[in-house]
């Protein structure tokens, strides 16, 4: 009787259809685990904002998102993330305004610098490695 009960319990937990379902779902989950980073990385670039050589903020240039922001402790410079997937120096108190006049950045290889405020925006690939067909630099 004891053995029969155990067999019944085992059957309850591991019916053939359940096993197939579990295996299937595990494979799907593992597939999601492996592919999700690549899907999320996509082709959307990332803006890195540096103060000197220090990376202080990373912003994904995702389309549809808008944001006007400052860096912590640096109120004299304003950045704007634009809905079309670009970023720019919006306002700066620097005398030459070169950073503002550089305009919107959206492509890998683009940069804008505000030398008086020691700030740099650099557009880099969101994928994990620079590819040979990515521009190494874009000039105006």
């Amino acid at each position: 009787m004891y053995d029969d009960r155990r067999e019944t319990a085992t059957m309850t937990f591991f019916k053939k259809s359940d096993l197939i379902l579990i295996v299937l779902l595990v494979f799907i989950a593992l597939g999601v685990w492996w592919t999700l980073p690549w899907l999320r990385a996509g082709k959307t670039p990332v803006a890195e904002i540096y103060e000197g050589n220090r990376l202080v903020k990373t912003v994904a240039l995702t389309e549809g998102q808008t944001e006007v922001f400052h860096l912590e402790g640096i109120d004299n410079v304003t950045f704007r993330l634009n809905a079309e997937g670009s970023i720019q120096f919006l306002v700066s108190d620097c005398p030459d305004q070169i950073c503002v006049q550089t305009g919107k950045l959206s492509k890998i290889g683009e940069t804008a610098a505000c030398l008086p405020n020691n700030l740099l925006i650099k557009i880099v690939p969101r994928k994990f490695q620079h590819k040979d067909d990515h521009p190494d630099i874009i000039v105006h």
């Binding site: 492509k107 683009e110 067909d133 874009i138």
Partner: peptide
């Protein structure tokens, strides 16, 4: 190396 040229016009 790939060097892009962009229109400077805003």
């Amino acid at each position: 190396w790939i060097v892009g040229i962009q229109n400077p016009s805003l």
